[in-house]
Amino acid sequence: MNNRIEEHAVLDTASDKETVEITVDGITIPAEKGEPILAALLANGIRINRYTAKKHEPRGLFCGIGQCTDCAMVVNGRPNVRTCITPVEAGMVIKTQEGIEGV
């Protein structure tokens, strides 16, 4: 699934970023270096970022600007990383977060 906007009436959507690979729950996906991790996930159709601690309910993008923490995931072993404001780096290992302490 490719949710990237390749063409737009007003915006120049041609990417000037390098394509890199990151893994999400063990699956390798293409991403653009420097874009928010969340954008790379959405581009690949991934919309669930974590599950809540008590009721194991899914959460995903809500505010998009680093204020609500619904997009928090485990990144390179570190939990509670706000993926909407954290830039992609090549080889990042990302996991869907369970609860507040990560997997």
Binding site: N3, R4, E35, A39, R47, L61, F62, C63, G64
Partner: peptide, 24 residues
């Protein structure tokens, strides 16, 4: 309201206009 895919309008705007991806 907590279902992934429910978001602030600003979040959708950020994704489409800044990051050029569709959140849905």
């Amino acid at each position: 309201w907590t279902t992934p895919g429910v978001m602030g309008a600003g979040a959708a705007q950020t994704m489409i206009n800044v990051h050029h991806v569709k959140p849905g």
